[in-house]
C-alpha cells in the first residue's frame, strides 16, 4: 500500500501529498507522471510528479480538487493509504544542453513546472520563471520557485499579488528586455499553453508543453489520451506527456477534454452529497 506520509493544504482548492513509493522515487524524473486510485473502485487518475525524494523514498503529488475523484482523494489524510500508485510513467522532460530557459507555470500547472525548473537550475542552466494565478489566495510554491530561478515574475489576473496580467505579458516583456532563450517550457491550462505557443512562435523560440488529456491505463494500451501533434496521432502516455508546443493541436485537445463533462458534473455532485452525509 502507498502510505500518505505528509499532507499539506497549499490553497483553498490545492493540496500536496507525499506518498511512500520507494521504487517510483528511485526512478522518477521531472516530466513523468503517476496514476493513482484512491480506493479499489475509484477511477484511475493521472497526475504529473511534483517532486520526489530518492532517499526518503517518497513521491510528491499536488492536486486541485475539481471533481469526484480528487474530492475522494482529499478525504484521505496522513497515515492513510492509496489503493494504487503506479509509475513513473511517460518520458522525462529533456533538459540536455539547455543554457537559458523560461519556465512558465499556470495555476496548479506550477506543481509540474517547479521540478523542471529545479532540475534545470541544478544543471547550471539560467532559469527565468513566470508563474500565473487567478488571485493572491491561489498562489502556490512561490518560495520554491524563487530558490531555483534567476528571475521570477508572478502574475495574477486581478492584480491582487505580483503584477496584474497574463503570463504571456511577462514572457513577452522578458523577451523584449533582450533575453534570448534556448527553450520555453510552458505548463498550465490548455488555453494558457496555446497562447504561450502563439507568442513564442512569433519570436521563433522552441517551446515544450506538458499535455494532460483524459487517460486510462497510462501505459500505451488504450489510446484514450491521443493527441494530434504535427498532423500525427500521438499518445500522451508513452510518446509524451511533453510535446513540441508549436505542433500540438490545442483546439482539438480542448474539445476532447470535455467528453465527459456532464458525467463529471454529476459525479462531483454525488461526491458532495456523500461527503455531507458522512460529516
Amino acid at each position: 500500500m502507498y502510505r500518505i506520509v505528509k499532507k499539506k493544504i497549499l490553497n483553498p482548492t490545492v493540496s500536496l501529498m507525499e506518498i511512500e513509493a520507494p521504487l517510483i522515487a528511485k526512478k522518477a524524473e521531472p516530466g513523468q507522471f503517476i496514476i493513482f486510485r484512491a480506493k479499489e473502485d475509484s477511477e484511475r487518475v493521472p497526475l504529473t510528479i511534483a517532486d520526489f525524494d530518492r532517499e526518503k523514498g517518497t513521491v510528491t503529488i499536488i492536486y486541485q480538487i475539481v471533481g469526484g475523484s480528487t474530492m475522494e482523494l482529499d478525504t484521505l489524510g496522513e497515515g492513510d493509504c492509496l489503493h494504487d500508485f503506479v509509475g513513473p510513467l511517460g518520458r522525462p522532460s529533456e533538459t540536455d544542453g539547455l543554457k537559458k530557459v523560461a519556465v512558465i507555470g499556470g495555476g496548479v500547472g506550477c506543481a509540474i513546472a517547479y521540478p523542471i525548473a529545479k532540475k534545470l537550475s541544478s544543471l547550471g542552466c539560467e532559469v527565468h520563471s513566470v508563474v500565473g494565478f487567478r488571485n493572491k489566495d491561489l498562489v502556490i510554491l512561490e518560495d520554491e520557485f524563487r530558490s531555483v530561478s534567476n528571475e521570477l515574475r508572478i502574475m495574477t489576473d486581478d492584480g491582487s499579488y505580483g503584477t496584474k496580467g497574463l503570463v504571456t505579458n511577462a514572457l513577452e516583456e522578458l523577451i523584449k528586455e533582450g533575453n534570448s532563450y534556448d527553450e520555453v517550457i510552458a505548463i498550465g491550462p490548455l488555453i494558457m499553453m496555446k497562447f504561450v505557443c502563439l507568442l513564442t512562435k512569433k519570436y521563433d523560440i522552441k517551446t515544450v508543453v506538458s499535455m494532460n488529456p483524459i487517460m486510462i491505463d497510462g501505459t500505451g494500451m488504450c489510446g484514450g489520451c491521443r493527441l494530434t501533434v504535427g498532423g500525427e496521432t500521438k499518445f500522451a502516455c508513452v510518446d509524451g506527456p511533453d510535446f513540441d508546443g508549436h505542433l500540438v493541436d490545442f483546439d482539438e485537445a480542448m474539445h476532447r477534454g470535455t467528453m465527459y463533462r456532464d458525467f463529471e458534473a454529476h459525479a462531483r455532485e454525488e461526491s458532495c452529497n456523500l461527503l455531507k452525509k458522512e460529516n
Binding site: G220, M221, C222, G224, R226, T233, F235, H255, R256
Partner: peptide, 26 residues
C-alpha cells in the same frame, strides 16, 4: 500483452465518441 491501438488516420477520429476497442473494453 497487447499494445498501442491502431487507428485509420481518417478525418474525424478525434471527435468525441470515437474509441479504440481497447479503451472501450477497458
Amino acid at each position: 500483452g497487447a499494445g498501442l491501438p491502431r487507428f485509420m488516420n481518417i478525418p474525424g477520429e478525434s471527435l468525441k465518441g470515437v474509441y479504440s476497442a481497447n479503451e472501450y473494453l477497458t
